[in-house]
Write a protein that binds this DNA or RNA. Structure first.
Lengths: 335, 335
DNA sequence: TATGATTATGATACCGCTAACAGTCAATAG
DNA sequence: CTATTGACTGTTAGCGGTATCATAATCATA
């Protein structure tokens, strides 16, 4: 491993002071062309690279932000991440990643790491962290929260309209004449799930369809969870003619188990998902689902954070991103 | 934003020296129970958090490693990432993420960022970076390269056996009596692609099937690329009875376009993919493909790096991970 | 021409922490 | 009873940068 040149080495080699080198490197302040050239030459010859850790310490800013998500291998989050990462880089920030596996304990660990490493800010996707903890974090480090809303008007937040999304999914089924519409919820301790359930119930009520608890199951957002749920739904009376799943992955599970149990989708049962992840259009049948702009969510989140860091925050700091119903082949009209 | 307590504040409050606090925090050296308790109390009361940036600078190690991948929204890499991230955390490291979008320019940018931020090491997935550059990086920072092999025996590397994988995919088709087997390659400037093509050719030769350039197309690993390729294959004479795609995503594209053009899979054409990403089993028809252990690859890569950092590297530093043929419904025997 | 403003550079004091060495004191050994 | 050891704590000098203030030289302005 080669030894690394420091700013002092460069200063010595080019016969100027530390500060002159620093100014050249950061293009700050005034330096004559001549000295700049001299310094630049020394930098090249020594292969000098500024030590950003040292800079962070001295300048009290690190130019990186932490993004903490429940699961990067979930297309939903990796897509969001991509948007975030991109926007961050374009604005001179690097990204520190935390994958919490949905565990509160890991969420805390990563938040601590971010603070201790002097992250300039955090973009946090932590569906089950308690509200008061979030406020506490917000006192320690600039924060943007994603995919959940919190009733605190000084914390920037970006989230999707789960309620409206769920309603339009269910109303789509109702419009196709379905009455026995089952609902496969996500875990009850995350806000998304609750909102989607609320949307389901509101849609039914709006159209005077009774809410039947037997048609409601709680899943865990996993593929396996979807499979299990399908089996339960179809071993129960009354069998639903349609199922609305709280996310696409569970919908995939439903569909796969349906195939195996020889129940045809959409002939025997219509299925609607939520998220429109990349592959929802590719499965058989292509999934009717709710699309929300994941990339945009990532971009918006970092944008808010960067603005906050530059004290350029608008008065509007809460963004609800609109979702759209994508009708494909997993739903059909019944008589 | 609250002001942050420093180690000095703690020292003052508990009437000990800086070093004593440092020792308590890091559990290094000997401290009496009494002073430890005193210091711990002060730490709690001041809500002190060690500044890891400062620590990194002083201790010349940062306890984080950079992982640089072409595309985290690609399940292949996000899965790998997950393994890496997990293993890293368990060993006291955090992860810095770089998504290069497959661009050499961004690869360089992230490598620089990693070095400048004093990353302890880099796990690099950079299929098209030139070999000599990789060696150069290896002189500056501990490096593990993933998903490509390089003929340099001091750089730890983990990769999959693309050649064998491709061969077994093609031989599977040959065993099903196919002769007109098309090949959809990845970009020609990445090693994976080259190896898979080599495997395709070797399998054909081994079974005395002539290699027909008309049946070979170059794709870009994208879904769209798969769609386009299918169209080309089927507007060309001779039409293949089977297609081996260099990755699953392209295979999905092939299948989708096939559906649209009313060509039945596997009745009219058999399709084999490569990667076995999560959703390959869920599409219609479920995809026959080559599975490689992505999670394991991430774990192994970080394991090698951590060992290297602790000077515990075995003599064996090159790992080829075995892949397996997963036979599903997208391939069938012909007469 | 005297004055203030601007440009170009340097000296110094940190940022918050750790490594390395230097004590102090009590216990144990010779 | 002195020497040695080990447990415990402190002092000092950085790590590699930047902020801040100071200084000298140059320039424009009244």
């Amino acid at each position: 491993m080669k030894a690394r040149a420091t700013i002092r080495d460069v200063a010595k080699k080019s016969n100027v002071s530390l500060m002159t080198v620093s100014r050249v490197v950061n293009q700050k302040g005034n330096i004559s062309k001549a000295t700049a050239a001299k310094v630049l030459k020394a930098i090249r010859e020594l292969n000098y690279r500024p030590n950003i850790t040292a800079r962070s310490l001295a300048a009290k800013k690190s130019d990186f932000i932490a993004i903490i998500v429940p699961d990067i291998s979930n297309p939903f989050f990796s897509e969001m991440m991509k948007g975030a990462e991109d926007f961050a880089r374009e604005n001179g920030y690097n990204i520190f990643l935390g994958d919490t596996e949905g565990k509160v304990e890991l969420e805390k660990e990563y938040i601590d790491a971010a603070i201790n490493r002097m992250a300039d800010g955090i973009v946090l996707v932590a569906p089950r962290l308690e509200n008061n903890l979030i406020c506490e974090i917000n006192d320690n480090i600039p924060l943007v929260i994603v995919d959940r809303s919190i009733n605190k008007n000084d914390i920037p937040q970006v989230y999707i309209d789960n309620l409206k999304g769920a309603m339009s999914a269910v109303e789509h089924l109702i419009n196709l004449n379905h009455k026995n519409i089952a609902f496969l919820s996500g875990p009850k301790d995350v806000q998304d799930s609750l909102q989607r359930e609320k949307g389901y119930i509101m849609a039914l009520k709006k159209h005077n369809i009774p809410v039947n608890p037997k048609l409601m199951l709680i899943g865990d957002f996993s593929f396996e969870g979807g499979r299990d749920a399908f089996e339960k739904f179809f071993s129960n009376y009354p069998k639903p003619t349609a199922i609305f799943a709280s996310n696409d992955i569970m919908a995939f599970g439903l569909i796969q188990r349906a195939h195996e149990m020889n129940v045809k989708v959409p002939k025997d049962v219509s299925i609607v998902g939520f998220d429109d992840i990349l592959l929802s259009s590719l499965i058989n049948p292509p999934l009717t689902t709710i699309r929300h702009p994941m990339l945009k969510m990532g971009i918006k989140a970092v944008e808010l954070l960067v603005n906050k860091l530059n004290n350029k925050l608008d008065t509007k700091i809460s963004f609800i991103l609109e979702n759209t119903l994508i009708v494909r082949k997993s739903t059909r009209r019944i008589e």
